[in-house]
């Protein structure tokens, strides 16, 4: 191919790796080698594999070498006017000068719909958006839970303070001192005040009730509240750390499996 380099062997390796494919199936395609450049006739039937934001085609289901790659970024997927014999066609269009759309056709309406849906949600940006939304929902859920728990202890009577030292010592055992000015706390505070996702409506009840009482000048335990708040922030940090360890800890294992 042209002048621009791509780590093609790694790309092909990823295409065949055991990480899950997001969608697979036979599609007809036009414009590749061995087919006329303009959409006519029945095209060529190939096996397609969607993996993340990459769409690969193969000669057959068993083939080990991808024929083509389309990176699904900055494109739109829409139903297309098909060549005469193809009813269930769709096109991947790029908003770039001189780039022809990729015309593809499924075997039936259900497959066509599934492909259009999968391809139009395949971009990295979409994935990142969902991950960020869930990240903030988890923060909100933890935040609300912390407030909820505290308000139930309060309701049970003001003699429940012994719980606090327990939590604090738990934090210290894990080797983290509860620092008041750690930045993840600010994040929790900030996210906590923004409107929460719909799925969290039931968590908002006790939380907002509690927040109302906290604002009243006669409420005596504001300092205790901040300790508790800190502790839950810590739990999130630990959770993140464990998660990072898990994510990165699994890497060497996979490397062994895939070793040369």
């Amino acid at each position: 191919m042209g002048a621009m380099k791509l780590n093609e062997r790694s790309v092909a390796h990823y295409a065949l790796s055991d990480s899950p494919a997001d969608h697979t199936g036979f599609l007809r395609t036009w414009g590749g080698p061995g087919t006329p450049p303009t959409p006519s006739g029945t095209g060529r039937r190939c096996w397609f594999v969607l993996k993340g934001n990459l769409l690969f085609s193969f000669e057959s289901r068993e083939s080990r070498a991808p024929l083509s790659l389309v990176v699904l970024e900055g494109c739109t997927v829409e139903l297309a006017e098909a060549p005469v014999s193809e009813e269930f066609a769709f096109a991947i269009r790029f908003d770039a000068p001189g780039v022809r759309p990729h015309l593809l056709a499924a075997d039936g309406p259900a497959a066509q719909e599934a492909w259009v849906k999968a391809l139009s949600r395949a971009s990295f940006g979409y994935m990142r958006l969902v991950v960020r939304e869930l990240e903030s929902q988890l923060r909100d859920a933890r935040h609300s839970l912390a407030l909820h728990r505290h308000s139930s202890w309060k309701a049970a009577g003001s003699c429940c303070k012994p719980q606090a030292p327990d939590h604090r010592s738990l934090g210290l055992e894990n080797g983290h001192s509860p620092s008041k000015d750690c930045s993840p706390m600010d994040l929790v505070e900030e996210r906590g005040s923004r409107p929460a996702g719909q799925g969290l409506a039931e968590w908002q009840g006790p939380a907002s009730h509690f927040l109302g009482r906290r604002q009243s000048p006669s409420f005596p335990e504001t300092s205790y509240f901040s300790t508790l708040h800190n502790w839950y922030g810590q739990e999130i940090m630990e959770l993140r750390q464990r998660w990072l360890q898990r994510v990165w800890g699994s890497q060497p294992e996979r490397e062994k499996q895939d070793g040369p």
Partner: peptide, 15 residues
């Protein structure tokens, strides 16, 4: 493996 260089070049201009 076939791919369209222009598509990748367009991606390289994204933020």
């Amino acid at each position: 493996m076939r791919y369209n260089e222009k598509e990748l070049q367009a991606l390289s201009r994204q933020p």
